Computed example of a mutant assay.
Amino acid sequence: MGTLLLEHLVSVARTHGIRAFTAEALTDNHEMLKVFADLGMPRPDEQAVHGMADTWLRRP
């Protein structure tokens, strides 16, 4: 479900000229981190702050 929602978000954002996203997930939320990875987002920095991992997505 997370992948479908994020793909839809990317599609809608693209139609509105948004080309970059940042995302946060709990470091122990491995399913969401996998969704990010499946969409080509870089692996979050291992230096998580307060159990939160950050990543980003940039689309042409």
Rank of each mutant, 00 (worst) to 15 (best):
M1V: 08
M1K: 12
T3M: 09
L4Y: 13
L5Y: 00
L6S: 01
H8E: 14
H8G: 03
L9E: 03
V10L: 15
S11K: 14
V12F: 00
V12C: 07
V12G: 04
A13V: 02
A13N: 08
R14H: 07
T15E: 07
G17R: 00
G17W: 00
R19I: 02
R19F: 00
F21M: 10
F21A: 05
A23Q: 01
E24M: 14
E24K: 11
E24G: 12
L26H: 13
D28I: 08
N29Y: 08
E31I: 14
M32S: 14
M32R: 02
K34H: 12
K34W: 08
V35T: 11
V35N: 02
V35R: 01
F36P: 03
F36K: 08
A37W: 08
A37G: 14
L39N: 11
M41R: 09
M41K: 02
M41F: 07
P42T: 05
P42V: 15
R43M: 12
P44E: 12
D45W: 08
E46F: 06
Q47I: 00
Q47W: 01
Q47L: 02
V49M: 07
H50V: 01
G51H: 04
G51D: 07
W56E: 13
W56R: 13
L57S: 00
R58N: 05
